[in-house]
Write a protein that binds this DNA or RNA. Structure first.
Length: 131
DNA sequence: GTTCTAACA
DNA sequence: TGTTAGGA
């Protein structure tokens, strides 16, 4: 049941393929990597090798971009996602599937987009539940 | 031909 | 972000 997960995390796609799949420029893809939004593997030639999970992540990022979010805002979303993964991992040792990730992202996306879709760079700030 | 990093008209 | 230089 986890086989597909392994296949999806198999990083073998060159940046050129990812460009076509996501319609993002190499510049953007590389930049997002420096911003910590994605972490593609590298082959022996220092070439980036993306997995389907990476592509999926890129497509999500593109979605945020279309909604007018900037890198810092998008990064914030993924930071929270990272926390979720850590939490799950430490607490239950439960493997996070890309479907889980999608749900978290979708939730974050909808809530953020719904609260301020206009132009204000301001966010509802962090959660108050962390005590 | 493709991808990489760094830098800027 | 685009684009280009110079390498691998």
């Amino acid at each position: 049941m986890m086989e597909k997960q392994l296949q999806r995390s198999r990083a073998v796609l060159p940046i050129g393929t990812v460009m076509k799949l996501t319609t993002l420029s190499a510049r953007q893809i590389r930049y997002y990597e420096t911003q910590g939004l994605i972490k593609p593997a590298r082959n022996e030639g220092n070439r980036r090798q993306f997995s389907l999970i990476d592509v999926d992540r890129l497509l999500d990022i593109k979605g945020y971009l279309d909604e007018g979010f900037n890198m810092t805002e998008i990064k914030r979303v993924y930071e929270k996602q990272a926390k979720h993964q850590q939490k799950e991992h430490k607490a239950l040792e439960k493997p996070v599937t890309d479907e889980d990730v999608r749900q978290v992202l979708q939730h974050e996306f909808l809530s953020i987009a719904g609260l301020n879709h206009g132009s204000e760079p301001s966010f509802p700030s962090d959660d108050l539940s962390k005590k």
